[in-house]
Design a protein around this nucleic acid. Structure first.
Lengths: 191, 191
DNA sequence: TCCATCAAACTGACCATCCGGTGCAAAAAC
DNA sequence: GTTTTTGCACCGGATGGTCAGTTTGATGGA
């Protein structure tokens, strides 16, 4: 909303969220406990609970932070893609946002499994954003299945990363990304 | 291996695993407790622990059962695809196994998030199988990125299903599946 | 046919631990 | 000195796991 409060030198809330991601990455979503987060960030449980009134709030904050960053990236990339004359700017924006977030904050996606493990209903904001994005993407092209194929492939890359699955060769992974972008560019625009 | 022991009319272990999947599907991986499973299957916690010596063992059994079923399906479909003259039989087998398992036992994939939530290291068998499969798939085609694109898209469909994400229209989902299979068939075989 | 036997399968009570959350006092920051 | 932030002891409940005992059902002998 407003600018970050300059009042506080260190952003405790952000540090706590980072620590939570680290815990999930290392020990799994089921081991994400307030004590573990406090230990990781070098604080006590009281301090954590001061910044986030409950564990549910912490999980929600993890998810919303990820969604916000993703949406910002996706929107910017979509604008750029539209300016560059790409036929499916929203899809391109999403694909590039996936890649950027994956590179800059590889653990951010873990918010999905962390929140989903505690309560599947907590993923509602994620679902809502995905539905919004999907609607816009489908609206921009005449080839719905092609666009959804690109989406599924991008989600698959996220999934593989989440589960430490076999990207094996990073070069291969990059090649797959290039293919996905190529598919996006080859989509025929809405008639 | 040998015939099922006639001693026991009901397969308790299988029932327990089914119940565990139902709990994860309904309440989330974080709510998968021994008591919850016992309640779901109509037993006491002691009974569950009689069949599986620990919760970790139960999670491992969920995962291995899923992997076994998947590998059987994939192997059969691969043989059929090879007989039908498809260029990338292993990839086709995998894609068809994903689809079949998703239709017949939609909750089976939840074993992944259930096991991964408790302990990421428990997913080692999954990673091993994926790596094995990937090696064979890459060995069958000259277009590695294309094959991995199909894999990623298939994983994306699983991911979307796991997270109750927006396949939205089942027809659209089916169309995406058809596209993935088309990509697999269009791959050039290894020179 | 009936009963004694025995092992597998399961129950129910119980334990130790952990976890989320509270209350309050002590610092820190301003 | 006031407000913000953190430390710390503690509680109620849930959870994984143990254990002794009970039920079930097949087997075999008289």
């Amino acid at each position: 909303m407003d600018a970050a409060p300059p009042r506080r030198a260190r952003n405790a809330a952000g540090d706590i969220l980072d620590a939570a991601h680290r815990v999930v990455a290392r020990d799994g979503a089921g081991r994400l406990t307030l004590d573990a987060v406090a230990r990781e960030v070098g604080m006590t449980k009281g301090g954590v609970l001061y910044n986030f009134p409950s564990k549910t709030a912490l999980l929600a904050a993890m998810l919303t932070r990820m969604l916000e960053r993703f949406e910002v990236e996706a929107a910017e990339a979509a604008v750029a893609a539209a300016a560059a004359g790409h036929s499916a700017p929203t899809l391109r924006g999403m694909l590039e946002a996936v890649e950027k977030l994956d590179n800059d904050h590889p653990q951010l996606h873990l918010a999905i499994v962390a929140a989903g493990a505690e309560d599947p209903a907590a993923l509602a904001p994620l679902r809502a954003m995905a539905a919004r994005l999907q609607a816009r993407i489908l609206d921009e092209t005449a080839d719905g299945p092609g666009a959804m194929l690109a989406c599924a492939a991008a989600d698959g890359l996220i999934f593989q990363r989440l589960m430490d699955m076999p990207p094996a060769d990073p070069a291969l992974r990059a090649a797959v990304r290039a293919r996905i972008l190529a598919i996006a560019d080859a989509l025929e625009p809405r008639a």
